[in-house]
């Protein structure tokens, strides 16, 4: 009967005292921070006590100092803006293409039979394999980088949209038919809202891949961007700079993902999901 325990706990959780509510509000994220912060402090201490010289694995203070230094020179913001704009352009293109083609294949059976096998075959190609071709076709500069990111974003969005349209409940579509909705009204009033949750998930997966692919794109001969910082750090033997770039990637990735979540939350308030109730408490 352990399964019922969360349900039984809920009455207590619903009326917590103000103090314990404030505590749990901070305690929960704090728990997640315990491990990374603990490891960082431990490493810092190990280097400080001389157990390691910290040359290959720089202690947190050194990474932080590198970030500050880069920020002061204005280099950091330049790299961040370059990378962000590449991700934004590639993500935008990938989302538009993935949404359009996914919608066509999801909605229209003929298009799916025509289009989907080809798309699935292309999806089977490791996307990095496109790099040489893109460089030949589009040059070494921005266009080929944006194209690679767009390819990475395209597939999860395409699959997400197509799957979302497919899994719209026939019973709910029948409600639309009973009220004699026209084609566009059916899309606007039934299909779009019904597929929205899955679409948001597809966007977030797509964005994650966008961040992955920007690194690959910037490895192929960039002169700026966070990926360039990684390569530069490797070539000049500056591990602190590499770790600094990784930390910034993590922060940017998490922030942009959170922005999508934040922007779509008002549209998904109706959802009856397990994670919702618990997460909000």
């Amino acid at each position: 009967m352990t399964i019922e325990a969360p349900v039984l706990e809920r009455p207590d959780a619903a009326v917590p005292s103000a103090a314990s509510a404030r505590l749990s509000r901070f305690a929960r994220p704090a728990l997640g921070l315990l491990l990374p912060v603990g490891l960082a402090l431990g490493w810092e201490l190990a280097v400080w006590l001389g157990y390691s010289n910290g040359r290959l694995v720089p202690p947190p203070t050194k990474v932080f100092a590198t970030i500050v230094e880069l920020a002061k020179s204005g280099e950091l913001s330049r790299h961040i803006i370059t990378t962000l704009s590449r991700v934004a352009a590639g993500f935008g293109l990938g989302v538009v293409a993935g949404t359009l083609l996914g919608a066509v294949s999801g909605y229209w059976g003929v298009a799916r039979r025509l289009l989907d096998p080809t798309v699935q075959a292309l999806r089977a190609i490791p996307s990095i394999a496109w790099v040489p071709l893109f460089i030949l076709w589009l040059g070494i500069f921005e266009t080929s980088k944006v194209a690679l990111i767009a390819v990475g974003v395209f597939f999860p969005v395409y699959l997400g949209v197509m799957g979302a349209i497919h899994s719209v409940d026939r019973k709910i579509v029948e409600v639309g038919r009973i009220f004699r909705l026209s084609g566009p009204a059916m899309i606007r009033r039934i299909l779009l809202p019904a597929m929205l949750p899955a679409y948001v998930v597809a966007l977030r997966v797509g964005l994650g891949l966008g961040w992955m692919f920007v690194v690959a794109a910037e490895f192929m001969g960039a002169s700026e961007g966070l990926g360039y910082l990684l390569i530069d750090g490797q070539q000049l033997g500056k591990p602190a700079q590499i770790v600094a770039a990784i930390v910034i990637f993590a922060i940017l990735g998490k922030t942009t993902d959170w922005l999508i979540e934040l922007a779509t939350a008002p549209l998904l308030r109706w959802q009856d999901a397990f994670g919702r109730e618990r997460g909000a408490a």
Binding site: K171, I172, E174, V175, I190, P193, A194, L196, W270, Q271, D272
Partner: peptide
């Protein structure tokens, strides 16, 4: 219908 079939987003 047998089920209410309400639109959950409205």
């Amino acid at each position: 219908f047998q089920e209410p079939r309400l639109l959950p987003w409205l």
